[in-house]
């Protein structure tokens, strides 16, 4: 099967310092790929670069294809319009907008045949959001904001979804819930690249795992095989020690 999302020779530098160097990375249809690695390994840099987005001013080079179409030259909003969606680190939502407006602001382009979650599906997925519909996002808890950020991304009808630590700051039970939700979405044929600090939790739901270190892929493979990989164990221990 040809990949939904494919990056080649992806390099990102911040002011001359190479932060990411990925010769090849692919995401197949209906696949959930986990990206793990220590703090500063380049996980956020990777998913941001795939969308051509950053809060800083990195220089990005390389080829990025979505459904075979080169998108590496497009501005972020145009990539979003083509079906690549990012939930950035820290579950970014519009604080001054209500939950309802946050959701209404995100809509799949008319005429696209992509599957966008409608409101009913969003509320079935995240019942909390329905209760808080008319609250400003600034009044939500951290976990509720994460839900809102993910819900917004789903409203855009993504072909491929990039999630940067959706479980950060959540209670352990909620972490499992969020990852389970992501798995369910993938089982409904969404392709997801999931950045996750919690290797143990991630390995339970992902199909493949990619281990980043200093901007390079140190190891990658099916989740089952990676489970006992000493390098993953090291990363895992490193995480536990941190």
């Amino acid at each position: 099967m040809s990949p939904v999302l494919e990056a080649r020779n992806l390099r990102v530098a911040y002011g001359g310092n190479l932060a990411l160097d990925i010769p090849h990375l692919a995401l197949k249809p209906g696949e959930l790929v986990g990206v793990v690695g220590a703090n500063g390994a380049g996980k956020s840099t990777l998913v941001n670069a795939l969308l051509g987005w950053s809060r800083g001013t990195p220089s990005v080079s390389g080829s990025i294809r979505l459904d075979g179409e080169e998108i590496g030259h497009l501005p972020p909003h145009a990539r979003v319009a083509r079906g690549l969606t990012l939930v950035p680190e820290g579950g970014a939502v519009f604080m001054r907008l209500t939950v309802e407006d946050n959701l209404a602001a995100a809509q799949a382009p008319r005429g696209s045949n992509r599957r966008a979650h409608d409101e009913a599906e969003i509320y079935a997925l995240f019942p909390r959001l329905k209760e808080r519909l008319h609250h400003h996002a600034s009044m939500l808890s951290g976990g509720e904001r994460q839900m809102l950020a993910i819900a917004r991304a789903l409203r855009l009808g993504p072909r491929a979804l990039l999630l940067d630590e959706p479980s950060i700051g959540l209670a352990p039970r909620l972490v499992a819930d969020v990852l389970r939700t992501v798995r369910d979405l993938v089982d409904e044929k969404l392709s997801v690249l999931l950045v996750e600090q919690n290797v143990r939790a991630a390995i339970e739901v992902v199909d493949r795992l990619v281990l980043l270190e200093r901007g390079r892929i140190l190891a990658s493979g099916p989740a089952a095989a990676m489970r006992d990989d000493p390098r993953i164990l090291a990363a895992y221990l490193g995480e536990a020690a941190a």
Binding site: L51, W53, R55, P75, P76, H77, A78, V80, A81, T85, L86, P88, A92, V93, F94, M95, R96, L97, A105, A106, Q107, P109, R152, L156
Partner: peptide, 12 residues
């Protein structure tokens, strides 16, 4: 509020 985030919502 946040022009960068607006890009992620598909706004030019």
């Amino acid at each position: 509020e946040d022009p960068k985030l607006a890009q992620l919502a598909g706004i030019d």
